[in-house]
Design a protein around this nucleic acid. Structure first.
Length: 461
RNA sequence: GGCCUCGUGGCGGAGUGGUGACGCAGAGGACUGCAAAUCCUUGCACCCGAGUUCGAUUCUCGGCGAGGCCUCCA
C-alpha cells in the first residue's frame, strides 16, 4: 500500500493527498443514470472515469476494501413522460416499469461493453423511498425544511454555508434575479424535497400525502444507506455541481449535522461532438448503443475498448471533442498492444503513479506504450504490461481460436514456408492473401540464431 | 449580468521557472522476394501584450478567443 494518491477536489479547488476515513473500507459514490432513454457518450465518461478510479482504489487498498455505489434513478418526471408516450395503453405503473427496466438493462449492457466493472452496489431510488422520507422528516425537525403548497421544500437560508461547492452564495444567486420566485417559496433558491402526485403520477404514501421525491434527495438517502453519513469520494459530471451536488450536500449535512458529506468531490469534464455541446437540438446526439451497434458515427461500428481508450486519452477534467479521427487513433493503438495474460503480475509502478496523480490516464497510457515497446523485445514483461493495462481496463482481449482452425492455419503456414524455400512466391502469397481475407494476419520474422524464417500469426483485431 | 474552466506542433495530448514529453499521422532508413509486424532516424509548438525574473510555454495582470454552469442535463 505504498502508493500515494492525490486527487483534485472541487470542494477546495486543489489537488490534495487522498487519505481515506477507513482504509479497510474506502467508500465512493457516483451519480448514475436516470433511466428513461439510451445512455449517450456523455454518460459514458463518468462511468469509465470512475471505473478507473474504482480499479485504482481496489489495487491500492485491496479488492474487498472498496465500496463503490452508483445509483439508478428510476423515479423522475422524464420517465413518466416517456412511459405515457411509449406505452399509452398500459396502466401507469406498468408503463413506468417497462421504461425503467428496458433502459436499465440497456445501460448495463452498454457500460459492460465499455469495460466497466459492476459497482459494489447499485441501488434504485424506488427501493429507497422510506430512507428519503426519513431524511426529509429529520430536515423538518431540525428546521431546515418546511411544507408549503403541497410541497416540502429545503430552506436554503437555514444553512449558513450553502453554496460552498459551487462557490455560489445565496445572495449572488438572487442578484441574478432570474430565478422565478414561486409564491410559496421562502427563498428563490429553495428546492423541492417532496411533492404531491396527482392520480396519473407515480406516488408513495408519506406524512405529507401521496407524493414523490424531489430530484436530489435520492442520492442523499442512498449514499447514507450504503456508505454512511460521511464518506470518501463523491463523483459525477461537471454539470452536476450546481444544483444537484450542492443540494445533496445541503440535505445530507443538515440532516446529519456533519461538516461534510464526502471529503473529496471529483467531477469529469464534458464530452463534445464536432466541437459543440452534444444535444438533441444540435443533431449531434450520439448514444453508446449507436457507437457500438450502428453505423451512425463515422459509417461504422466501434468496439467498446476503442471507445474506452478514446475517452481515457484525455484527462478526465478536460473537455473531450469526440471525433472519428480520435476513435481511429485509439483503434490503431490498441491493435498494436499485445493481448497478454496478466497471470499474477503486479502492474507497473509508473502506471500506478500516473493514475495516483489525479487519474492522469494520459501519462498512464504513455507508460503502457513504453511497456508494450519493451515487451516486444522481452516477452517476460508481457504479464506486467497486461496487469498494467488491466488497471485502466484497456487490456486487449485475447481472441480464442479453436483447435481445428489453429491446426488448419498451422498447416497452411508450413505449406507456405515450403513454397518460399522453393521460391514459389506467387503460390506462397496466395496463401497469405487467402488467410488475410479470413482475418488471419501472418507475421514473418527471423530466428535469431539460425537466420531461418519464422512465421507467426494472429487474428486481426 | 454573476460564477467557473480552458487556449501547447497537421491531429491527440501531459508537463515544467532554464535546449523544445509522448502518441498518431508525415518523411527517411533497416529487415523482407514483396507485404505486414518490428526496429532506428527525423521535421514541426507552447493565443497576444505588459509585468515579475539572470531567464517564462510554465508565475501575475490585462486583452483576445473557446467552452461550461446559473433552468432538465454526465
Amino acid at each position: 500500500m505504498g502508493a500515494s494518491l492525490k486527487f483534485y477536489n472541487t470542494l477546495t479547488r486543489e489537488k490534495t493527498a487522498f487519505s481515506p476515513i477507513d482504509p479497510k473500507s474506502v467508500r465512493m459514490y457516483v451519480c448514475g443514470p436516470t433511466v428513461y432513454d439510451y445512455a449517450h457518450i456523455g454518460n459514458a465518461r463518468p462511468a469509465i472515469v470512475f471505473d478507473v478510479l474504482f480499479r485504482l482504489l481496489r489495487h491500492v487498498y485491496g479488492e474487498g476494501h472498496v465500496s463503490y455505489a452508483r445509483n439508478i434513478t428510476d423515479v423522475d418526471d422524464k420517465i413518466n413522460a416517456r412511459a405515457l408516450r411509449d406505452h399509452p395503453g398500459l396502466p401507469l405503473n406498468e408503463a413506468i416499469r417497462a421504461v425503467t427496466e428496458r433502459t436499465e438493462t440497456q445501460y448495463h449492457e452498454d457500460v459492460a461493453a465499455l469495460g466497466c466493472l459492476e459497482p459494489t452496489v447499485e441501488p434504485r431510488a424506488t427501493d429507497n423511498i422510506p430512507q428519503m422520507i426519513e431524511i426529509i422528516e429529520k430536515l423538518i425537525a431540525r428546521g431546515h425544511a418546511y411544507v408549503a403548497a403541497g410541497e416540502v421544500l429545503f430552506d436554503t437560508k437555514s444553512m449558513g454555508d450553502y453554496g460552498k461547492l459551487s462557490k455560489r452564495p445565496l445572495d449572488e444567486q438572487q442578484a441574478g434575479a432570474r430565478v422565478a420566485v414561486d409564491a410559496h417559496k421562502k427563498n428563490p433558491g429553495d428546492f423541492v424535497l417532496w411533492k404531491l402526485s396527482s392520480d396519473n403520477e407515480p406516488g408513495w404514501e408519506s406524512p405529507w400525502g401521496r407524493g414523490r421525491p424531489g430530484w436530489h434527495i435520492e442520492c442523499s438517502a442512498m449514499s447514507r444507506r450504503y456508505l454512511g453519513e460521511v464518506f470518501d469520494i463523491h463523483g459525477g459530471g461537471l454539470d452536476l455541481i450546481f444544483p444537484h451536488h450542492e443540494n445533496e450536500i445541503a440535505q445530507s449535512r443538515c440532516a446529519h449535522g456533519t461538516e461534510v458529506m464526502a471529503n473529496v468531490w471529483m467531477h469529469n469534464g464534458f464530452v463534445q461532438v464536432e466541437g459543440r455541446k452534444m444535444s438533441k437540438s444540435e443533431g449531434n446526439f450520439i448514444t453508446i448503443y449507436d457507437l457500438l451497434h450502428t453505423e451512425k458515427f463515422g459509417g461504422r461500428q466501434w468496439p467498446g475498448e476503442v471507445l474506452r481508450l478514446a475517452m481515457l486519452m484525455t484527462h478526465y477534467r478536460e473537455p473531450i471533442d469526440f471525433s472519428v479521427k480520435r476513435l481511429e487513433e485509439a483503434e490503431r493503438l490498441i491493435a498494436r498492444w499485445p493481448a497478454a495474460d496478466p497471470g499474477g503480475a503486479a502492474p507497473c509502478d509508473t502506471v500506478i503513479e500516473a493514475l495516483g496523480d489525479d487519474l492522469n490516464t494520459v501519462a498512464a497510457i504513455q507508460a503502457l506504450h513504453a511497456l508494450a515497446h519493451e515487451a516486444h523485445a522481452d516477452k517476460t514483461l508481457l504479464p506486467i504490461f497486461a496487469a498494467s493495462a488491466n488497471l485502466l481496463g484497456v487490456l486487449p482481449q485475447k481472441t480464442e481460436v479453436d483447435e481445428a482452425l489453429a491446426s488448419a492455419v498451422d498447416a497452411l503456414v508450413s505449406m507456405r514456408l515450403e513454397l518460399l524455400k522453393a521460391k514459389n512466391f506467387p503460390e506462397a502469397d496466395k496463401i497469405r492473401n487467402e488467410l488475410s481475407e479470413k482475418g488471419i494476419q501472418l507475421k514473418d520474422g527471423k530466428d535469431a540464431s539460425t537466420g531461418e524464417r519464422v512465421t507467426t500469426w494472429e487474428l486481426k483485431r
